[in-house]
């Protein structure tokens, strides 16, 4: 009887120990599985993030160009100020811009790296690039003298002083100011 009782006691303590060990093992496996799962998900997220880094860089450049194009006409380098009577909004002084073009090397990277600015007359239309020789009988002022690819644009009034019958008057035309930005997606690997 006593032997049987002790056998039963030993068996039951062994069973409960085994149960506890099993439970611990189960928990450890579960924790390992969960951790591994989250590590895999994290790696997937990182892979997706870095796959779009060129697009993100281009997006940032594009946003900068868009902000610049809405404000640049009112900056001191471009704005008409009080030269054409009262202060005008979105007015660019063409004479000032031509002088700026002549000294553009002093404004290297001033508006951002690899940013070019072009002012194109919309009306009347034309494709003649402005130089000191042909100004003002021209239509396009390209500050860096480089072709523009990706760009944001805005309408401006392009004003200058003109002569008629020996009298100076203000002549304003409709133009578009275009600010280019670097498209990182086009950069070769």
């Amino acid at each position: 009887m006593k032997r049987q009782k002790s056998k039963i006691l030993i068996c039951s303590s062994l069973t409960s120990q085994t149960k506890a060990q099993l439970k611990i093992q189960q928990m450890v496996f579960m924790l390992l599985a969960v951790t591994l799962f989250f590590v895999l998900v994290g790696m997937l997220v990182l892979a997706l993030r870095f796959a779009g880094i060129k697009e993100s860089a281009t997006e940032i450049e594009e946003k900068n160009a868009m902000l610049l194009v809405t404000r640049i006409a009112n900056s001191p380098e471009f704005s008409c100020g009080n030269a054409f009577g009262k202060s005008r909004t979105n007015c660019i002084d063409a004479d000032k811009v031509m002088m700026l073009k002549k000294n553009i090397d002093k404004y290297d990277n001033f508006w951002g790296r690899e940013t070019n600015i072009e002012i194109r007359k919309i009306y009347p239309k034309g494709n003649v690039v402005c130089t000191i020789r042909n100004y003002p009988d021209c239509n396009l002022i390209n500050l860096q003298s480089e072709e523009i690819h990706a760009e944001h644009s805005n309408f401006v009034s392009l004003c200058r002083k003109d002569l008629i019958n020996g009298e100076v008057y203000d002549k304003c035309e409709l133009a578009k100011i275009m600010v280019s930005y670097k498209d990182w997606r086009e950069v070769q690997k």
Binding site: L48, R49, G52, E55, E59, E62, M66, T70, R88, T89, N90, C91, Y123, S153, N154, F155, V156, S157, C159, D170, K171, C172, E173, L174, A175
Partner: peptide, 26 residues
């Protein structure tokens, strides 16, 4: 959230600037 927002075909500031610019046209 990672999806890029696309640029609008016509922005509001373009239309506003257009009116202000053509009013000054000589």
């Amino acid at each position: 959230s990672l999806k890029n927002s696309q640029k609008e075909i016509v922005e509001s500031y373009e239309v506003e600037s257009f009116i202000q610019a053509f009013l000054q046209y000589t």
